[in-house]
Amino acid sequence: MSETGLHDRTAVDESELVARLRAGDERAFEALVERHYPTMLAVARHYVKTRAVAEEVVQEAWLGVLNGIDRFQGRSSLRTWILRILVNTAKTRGEREARTVPFASLAPEDDEPAVESERFRGADDPFPGHWRAYPGNWQRLPDEVLAARETLDIVIATIHQLPAPQRIVITMRDIQGCDSEEVCEALDVSEGNQRVLLHRARAKVRSALEGHLDG
């Protein structure tokens, strides 16, 4: 993993790339593949068992994209449209592969507070639910601390350990720059569930950073 985020690049005009792709421009195709491959692979891995099959699903989905590009009308984002083709491909394949984890497992489990309840004053306190001690003020931290490789490694390790549904949602939203609509479409979850999964994932990463930065 390197240091430059995708977020800035995704804003580059997609309709131009689509037009060039329709005209058979190989560079445009490569640019689209580079841009969307990580998200496609992550989503495909969610529907099929192995990375090898997920790779095949992504490749098959690109054929679907090429064969259907003339019908893309821009009513949704190109990414949403590509992900829809990918999910259809993956689901067909997933059924053949008899994936063991049911997709319904994406539904959030029990209550899981963003911050441990011990950090707030109890019901018998004059200020119930208020911080016992404030969280740290990170604006006072030197920039180098946040930018340090070590800090990033802690974030990567924490995301790696998240339950799969939380991991894919935070990956799509905060690493790959998808919006909530794209996530809901790709994972077949409600907006509310998507938000709960993102909320829990971010809370755990924040907590890991807190342990590192304030510890």
């Binding site: 995708l6 946040l146 690493i175």
Partner: peptide, 22 residues
């Protein structure tokens, strides 16, 4: 202030996650 700093921590968390590339 506590919640302001918490919100700031969350924004920092999101931007730090955003520095990961795949």
């Amino acid at each position: 202030d506590g919640c302001e700093w918490y919100l700031d921590q969350m924004r920092t968390t999101i931007s730090t996650v955003g520095r990961i590339t795949e």
